[in-house]
Amino acid sequence: MKFHIAALPGDGVGQEIMTEGIKVLRAAEEIVTGFELDFEKFEVGANLYRKTGVALPDEAFKACQDSHAIYLGAIGLPEVREKTGPEVGGQVMFKLRFDLDLFAGVRPFKLYEGVESPLRNVEKIDFVVLRENIEGLFASYGGGTLVSDEVATDTVVITRKGTEKISDYAFQLALKRNGRVLDGKKVVTCVDKSNVFRSMAFFNKVFNQVADRYEGQVKRDHALIDAMTLWMVQQPQNYDVIVTENQFGDIISDLAASLVGGMGMAPSGDVGYNHGMFQPAHGSAPTIAGKGIANPFAMIISGAMMLDWLGDKHQNKSAKKAAILIEMAVSQTLKERVKTFDIGGTASTTEFADHVVAQMKKLANQVNTVS
């Protein structure tokens, strides 16, 4: 099967890491076979806005809408902003998320051998932060109020439908995983501020109603957001799948990244029932753009997530095998201490990706035995 992929390199380091991400995906396509990837690149983002006044052209949005998946590099530059204040990168991110109903922000965090965590005596971390992507505080994007330059407000929006969708996705994801590091139990932890806010109490209530459907299959857990920032650092092995509101998910996913090596180690997927967008969770890092030192790990693993999602959606076992192959090769690369500077190594952006490709070729026979 041929998959049409809308590729959006974006801003800053996006161009560099996109090149390496596609290189790895092309290698997977060649080694595994059984699927094809047709990439079509489109210029979007802050640099384009600076030139044209448009961050996401209609042509690019239509291509994303019609594609099998979207592969995104990095969007936004701090100094390129709308007249009302926010960065223009939101014009790309939020239109794609909202208009394509990419309701699940999937952010996996895994500590790889060869990468040091700032936590003492922690050898294994493996959990997912699942961020509701189109409601919560972010539903106010483009709205809110500003009165006489004296009062500004934004509104949190929580709906039953949206909460049911993200909660059900969380339990379905837990069923596919191997459980938490602590004891192998499959657990979904709802994170909210239900002791204070009516909207959060409602989020928690709907979560528990969905959890009832999975009784006996997946354990439910609960944490208040302030406590979670403590517990996630103290005992990350206690968590399997964490599901939370949009803004909370945005914050704690960055905290989670710090535990496994930093933002360069944070891949992500924004997915819905019909569309999927895959990108590193880090920003455009303009201060290191063009220096060849950006970490392509998150871009590469986001590509593997894309293949896995496509494999599930289109019943293509080859795409899923290719995703496994990429993850195995990245793991072996890091195990051999081939690392970029942000995680204590000396490899360039290209050298890291080239080593991953070399490992993929070595591991090809192993992945082809996967049923």
Rank of each mutant, 00 (worst) to 15 (best):
M1I: 09
M1D: 04
I17C: 07
M18I: 14
V24G: 05
V24T: 09
E30P: 00
I31G: 01
K41A: 12
R50D: 13
K62M: 11
P78Y: 02
T84C: 00
F94C: 06
R97Y: 11
R107N: 08
L111G: 05
G114W: 05
G114D: 05
G114F: 02
P118E: 07
V128G: 04
L137I: 13
F138N: 06
G143P: 00
G144E: 04
E150H: 13
A152Q: 03
T155E: 13
I158C: 04
G162S: 04
L173N: 04
L182G: 00
C190I: 13
V191G: 07
K193H: 09
S194L: 04
S199Q: 08
F202K: 11
N204T: 15
F207P: 09
V210E: 07
G216S: 05
G216N: 05
V218D: 02
A223K: 11
D226R: 01
Q235L: 10
Q247L: 15
I251N: 01
I251E: 05
D254K: 08
G262N: 11
G276F: 03
M277G: 03
H282V: 01
A285I: 09
T287E: 15
A289M: 03
M299T: 14
I300M: 07
I301Q: 12
K313A: 12
N316D: 06
L325V: 09
I326C: 04
L334P: 00
F352T: 02
A358M: 12
A364I: 03
Q366T: 12
V367W: 00
S371V: 14
